[in-house]
Amino acid sequence: MSRRPADPRERQSQPPGRLLRRGSVVLGIVVLALVAFGSTTQTWLVVRLPQEAVQTPDLMIAGSDAATPVTAFALVALAAAIAVSIAGRVARWIIAVILVLSGLGVMLSSAGVALDPAAAAEPAIGAAVGVSGLPGAESEATVLPWLAVAAGLLLVLAAVWVILAGRRWGINRRYDAGRTGAGTEAHGTLPAAPRPSTGDIAPGVVPDEDTGPTARAGRRSTAHADEIDSWDELSRGNDPTG
């Protein structure tokens, strides 16, 4: 028994897979943004100061101090994730661009700290001991800057995820109803409005229009008035036909 080929319309009506659902995409972007943001609250740099020069314990520099832009870019990505939940077709492209920019910002800022921890630690060292560029200070980056780099890269890929998955998302029913009503009115399929009333017709007056219940009532009123006039003429002894 041969199988009937699948109808393309049936394939389009099938619900998208789990990874292509709007909720899954939103949740994934939120997790990536929170990973990048949460990493900045932890220690990114460990600075060992020379104890013979300054009696200061080692400095633990958080990511928010070592790379302030990472926090801002992560918040932008989080806002973009929330916007995906209500975005339409055009808005999804704008959100994808925002995700690419925020992901690149997280990557570049985090990689700068991981590759050059000494330069990233100088502002914190100057604030702690009052001397910028203290000789003998050793700065070491933890693994968290690289974790933020990975989160930034995944945010860039999430922009592609939004575009590809968005093709399977349906139109928001709330706004679709409004578009349907507007399209029906534009194509003239709404019921026609009732014709305005022509008002009362005086006896003996025949309306211009020859159709409709009002015109028929006017003709009946005129015929009845003519009959009354004929009987009046006869009662006076006059011949109405003369």
Rank of each mutant, 00 (worst) to 15 (best):
R9G: 14
E10S: 14
R11L: 15
R11C: 05
R11T: 11
R11F: 08
Q12P: 00
Q12C: 04
S13E: 14
Q14F: 06
Q14A: 15
P15Q: 08
P16R: 09
P16G: 07
R18A: 13
L19M: 13
R21H: 01
G23W: 03
S24K: 00
V25L: 12
L27F: 08
G28N: 12
V30E: 15
V31H: 08
V31Q: 12
V31W: 06
L32C: 08
L32F: 03
A36Y: 05
A36D: 11
F37E: 15
F37H: 15
F37D: 14
G38H: 05
S39F: 10
T40D: 07
T41Y: 06
T41K: 12
T43L: 05
W44D: 07
W44L: 07
L45A: 04
L45F: 02
L45S: 05
V46K: 12
V47T: 09
R48W: 02
L49C: 01
P50W: 10
P50S: 04
V54L: 11
Q55Y: 04
T56E: 15
P57M: 03
P57Y: 04
D58T: 15
D58V: 14
D58S: 14
D58E: 15
L59R: 04
L59K: 01
M60S: 13
I61M: 00
A62E: 14
G63P: 07
S64Y: 10
A67H: 04
A67C: 08
P69V: 10
P69S: 06
P69T: 06
V70P: 04
V70T: 13
A74P: 05
A74S: 13
L75H: 01
A77W: 04
L78F: 15
L78C: 01
A80G: 07
A80Y: 02
A80R: 02
A80V: 11
A80K: 00
A80C: 09
I82W: 06
I82N: 02
V84T: 01
G88M: 01
R89T: 14
I94D: 12
I94L: 14
I94M: 13
I94F: 09
I95Q: 00
A96T: 07
A96K: 03
V97E: 10
I98W: 03
L99C: 03
L99Y: 00
L99D: 02
L101W: 08
L101T: 07
L104H: 11
L104M: 12
L104D: 12
V106T: 10
V106P: 03
L108H: 10
S109C: 11
S109Y: 03
A111S: 10
A111G: 02
V113M: 07
A114G: 13
A114S: 14
A114Y: 11
D116C: 04
A119D: 13
A121M: 05
E122I: 14
A124M: 09
I125Y: 01
I125E: 09
G126S: 13
A127T: 08
A127D: 14
V129W: 00
S132G: 09
G133Q: 13
P135F: 02
P135L: 08
